[in-house]
């Protein structure tokens, strides 16, 4: 009902502009002008970023061993003495042989920086690779271009080729018209909600 209604009612850009203004305003209210973190919050964050010296992999915040308790006391003392978070972390690390091992987020320098950089670089590379690979994403594809013709040729050739491998049916039954064959068995009332192309038939057309 409202599905078809919204199809006829054209939605312009202005409701979205209004929404954007509201969202940005709300985010600004919720983000700007925050109080600086209290000593308690800083302590808790530090406890989460330092491993309990006697545990395998637990953070100080998650451990009730005496060793974790001792680090908590230490953090508290240094915070009250006015040290910065980084100074406290360095101080705790300096008290141990191999103490950098206690910091749960590797430093952003040296070899440890890789753990931060590699995923970011890989993600950018993956997206860039996709963009290159599907480089002919263009609205112009609506009118037939050379690229389209090539595409069709490639499809046809592939079809011929694929039918050698898989004798039953074309390789692309779905490209032609996806839902023709599929719902034919199901009752008409349950016109396959699974693959019903969302509201396409409801609103899109």
């Amino acid at each position: 009902m409202s599905g078809s209604g919204s199809a006829t009612r054209r939605v312009g850009w202005w409701p979205w502009a209004l929404m954007a203004v509201v969202v940005v305003a709300l985010l600004a209210v919720g983000t700007l002008g925050g109080k600086p973190p209290t000593l308690d919050e800083r302590a808790h964050n530090l406890e989460k970023s330092i491993r309990c010296p006697s545990c395998a992999s637990q953070a100080v915040a998650n451990s009730d061993t005496p060793a974790a308790e001792a680090v908590r006391v230490l953090i508290r003392e240094r915070l009250e003495a006015g040290d910065s978070d980084e100074e406290i972390r360095d101080y705790v690390a300096s008290r141990y042989p191999d103490g950098r091992q206690l910091l749960l987020d590797p430093a952003g320098r040296g070899f440890g920086a890789l753990v931060w950089a590699v995923p970011v670089v890989a993600a950018i590379a993956a997206v860039a690779g996709l963009v290159v690979r599907f480089g002919d994403w263009r609205p112009a594809a609506v009118t037939a271009t050379d690229a389209d013709r090539e595409l069709v040729a490639a499809h046809l050739a592939a079809r011929a080729d694929q039918s050698v491998i898989g004798p039953t049916g074309g390789p692309e039954p779905s490209v032609a018209e996806p839902s023709v064959a599929e719902p034919s068995v199901a009752e008409p009332s349950a016109a396959d909600p699974v693959d019903g192309p969302d509201g396409n038939d409801q609103e899109g057309a």
């Binding site: 491993r51 749960l104 753990v115």
Partner: peptide, 26 residues
């Protein structure tokens, strides 16, 4: 990210003899 963070301490130790931990903050 999850896999790298999990095995990174091993990689770091093997390649640089440097022991690091990767935990919740990362």
């Amino acid at each position: 990210v999850v896999l790298l963070g999990t095995v990174f301490p091993l990689i770091s130790e093997a390649l640089t003899q440097d022991r690091v931990s990767v935990g919740e903050p990362y």
